[in-house]
């Protein structure tokens, strides 16, 4: 089973990447675009029969994939 985890900076944290993309889009005439955020997508394979998948994912995110001081994640 393919698992996709989206990791982003938390909303309250300044995210210069997103801000820059937004400015660039606006400069290109796409002035409707607002609140641009950039994240990273981590994909991985897990066995279909894995026990307690959500705890497992929570565990790998907590241990390595996500720094909860600045980041949040969602499983897609």
């Amino acid at each position: 089973m393919r698992v996709k985890i989206l990791v982003r900076l938390k909303k309250q944290i300044l995210e210069p990447q997103g801000k820059n993309i937004e400015e660039c889009l606006n400069n290109l005439g796409f002035s409707e675009c607002g609140n641009v955020r950039q994240g990273k997508l981590i994909e991985l394979d897990l066995p279909e029969d894995i026990k307690d998948k959500s705890t497992y994912i929570k565990d790998i995110c907590g241990k390595l994939l996500v720094n909860d001081i600045i980041e949040e994640y969602e499983v897609l």
């Binding site: 900076l9 300044l14 210069p16 990447q17 820059n20 001081i69």
Partner: peptide
């Protein structure tokens, strides 16, 4: 050290990227 948790906070990308 911040990732270990010995120091508090985190280091983000420089504002000017």
């Amino acid at each position: 050290l911040t990732e270990i948790g010995l120091l508090s906070g985190a280091l983000n990308r420089n504002v000017k990227l």
